[in-house]
Nucleic acid binder design. Structure first.
Lengths: 225, 225
DNA sequence: TCAAAAGTGTTTTTTATACACCCATGC
DNA sequence: GCATGGGTGTATAAAAAACACTTTTGA
């Protein structure tokens, strides 16, 4: 090691884990298991050590929580105010993750006492975690503006209405059903199946399924502003 | 300090400093003054210590270079592959900065041997610095899509054509003069002065000046895709 | 039978693009 | 007088929004 004389810092990752259930965008909170603020609600986090990138560290946190190693992850930003954590100087790199609640709920709830909270009625979180969530949601909106978000949040098969409800909750506004359908279908990013979902309407709505990532090529804005 | 037993890491900031000169978007490069790769070209960087946020650390680097303390700075992302720096494990938080070349060139060139390079013909840089530049440019384009970029790069007074040339070089494409002018003026973000610039055309072009940040409220996309 | 979601079609408005054309002036 | 960038206007195309209307079927 050449850079001998420079002070080192503690680095952590914190993950804003988004899920979608009952037509609500939710995120995963935990009761903090160490001091300070033990028992209060917080995001999941982990330490970054010598031989891992921050992406790997975040992926490892998610792997530990869900048993899955291919979870959708994006960097939000770095939080590094010297006094942001009363327990000491910790620089935190924040990520957001998208996961399917139904698939992973059991392990999460049973083993870790995790709780899903609707993003539009979050409680107070420890330290600067509320700010992290806010930034993460902005990034998610940014992503959903130019890319189709849903593969990681919805079931394998889903209706256009379910996708629209997801977009409604990401952007906290109501998209027009007819216009949303036309816009989404024009992207040619999904295949219509021959099966219908009859649970949400009497008429029944066709199920769709995302094409493989390679077949999808979206080069236009999906959501205006 | 409560978090005793966790390994700490070396943290640095690296700055992609953009400037604009001769109708070219340029960035500031330095000859690295320590091993490894001493003498090769790199971005400016600095270490992050205990009592400073990464934003403060980046601002300090820029202050040192230019003497200015209010430089435009945005976070790009974290680069943290364990082997990204052959000199040891360093996690780098990358920022980009926008500065006016004419205002600060002397100090930069004289004291630090800095060199301005057109972004579209960059040499090989040390480590992962080329990748950092690429990401920074993407972020700058993202910013310029929904906000008017120019205040920090152009002179106080500038013509629409100069602003268009800046946008041309940020997006590496040619905007239509008539349409660009209409779009920009519709934002009502600048005041027209009664002075003309006659250096770039015989007819002369009116100078404009940005309104104060508070008066500017852009709620639409400026550049399509 | 009728409420309610699914799905299609039509109209209007807004935004983007292409490009014609006049202006002013230094050479 | 003509080439050059400055500046305005117009026609067209593309994208977004508003909304009417038809279909289907369980309650």
């Amino acid at each position: 090691m050449i850079y001998q004389n420079h002070p080192k810092q503690l680095i952590s990752v914190d993950c804003v884990v988004f899920g979608y259930q009952n037509e609500q965008l939710k995120l995963l909170l935990f009761e903090r298991d160490l001091e300070p603020a033990k028992g209060e609600l917080s995001l999941v986090g982990g330490w970054v050590n010598e031989n891992k990138s921050v992406e790997d560290a975040a992926a490892q946190v998610l792997l530990h929580l869900t048993g899955l190693s291919d979870i959708f992850l994006k960097q939000v930003s770095v939080f590094s105010k010297p006094d942001r954590d009363p327990g000491g100087r910790v620089i935190s790199v924040v990520f957001y993750a998208l996961i399917n609640i139904e698939d992973h709920n059991q392990k999460l709830v049973d083993e870790f006492g995790a709780k899903w909270w609707p993003v539009d009625q979050l409680p107070n979180l420890v330290f600067d975690h509320n700010l992290m969530v806010e930034k993460a949601l902005e990034k998610l909106q940014q992503l959903a503006t130019y890319e189709l978000v849903g593969r990681d949040l919805l079931a394998e098969q889903f209706t256009i209405t379910q996708l629209r409800n997801l977009y409604n909750s990401i952007f906290q506004r109501e998209f027009d059903p007819g216009n949303f359908r036309k816009k989404i279908l024009s992207l040619k990013a999904m295949d219509r199946l021959d099966i219908k979902d009859t649970s949400e309407s009497k008429k029944g709505a066709f199920y769709y399924q995302f094409k493989s990532q390679e077949e999808i090529n979206i080069s236009e804005r999906i959501v205006k502003l």
